[in-house]
Amino acid sequence: MKFITIKKSHFETDLLILKGRLESEGIVCFLKNQYTTQTMNYMPTFEVELQVLEKDLEQVQNLILEIENN
């Protein structure tokens, strides 16, 4: 299983809505660097990354397009 980053942000909250939507569709998600950015938020180089399984990437891209078009 390989995870692919689909979106990055300095703030975890920016990714939580999309993460929730993906999970409601049955897509496994992972927030990489979630705790690092909370404890080292003074360092602008750290970003939280929303990741999905490589096998779900096409479904995720279609869902993101649908969200952006509505």
Score class of each variant (00 low, 15 high):
L50N: 06
Q51E: 14
L65W: 04
Q38N: 04
I27H: 06
K7N: 01
V52G: 00
V60W: 01
F30V: 02
N70K: 12
E68C: 08
K32I: 02
F11D: 04
M43D: 15
V52A: 01
K19N: 08
K19A: 15
Q34N: 08
T37S: 10
K8P: 00
T36W: 10
K7P: 00
L53G: 05
F11K: 09
Y35H: 09
R21P: 00
I17R: 04
E47N: 11
S24C: 05
E54D: 07
M43L: 15
Q51L: 15
H10Q: 12
H10D: 03
I6L: 15
T37R: 10
L57D: 01
V48D: 03
L22G: 04
K19G: 05
S9V: 00
N62L: 15
K8I: 01
E66N: 14
F3N: 05
Q38E: 13
Q59R: 15
K55G: 08
E54P: 02
L31H: 01
K32E: 09
V60M: 05
E47H: 09
E66V: 00
F11T: 01
I6Y: 10
R21W: 09
H10R: 14
N70T: 00
E68Q: 11
V28C: 08
V28F: 08
E54C: 08
E68L: 14
T13N: 11
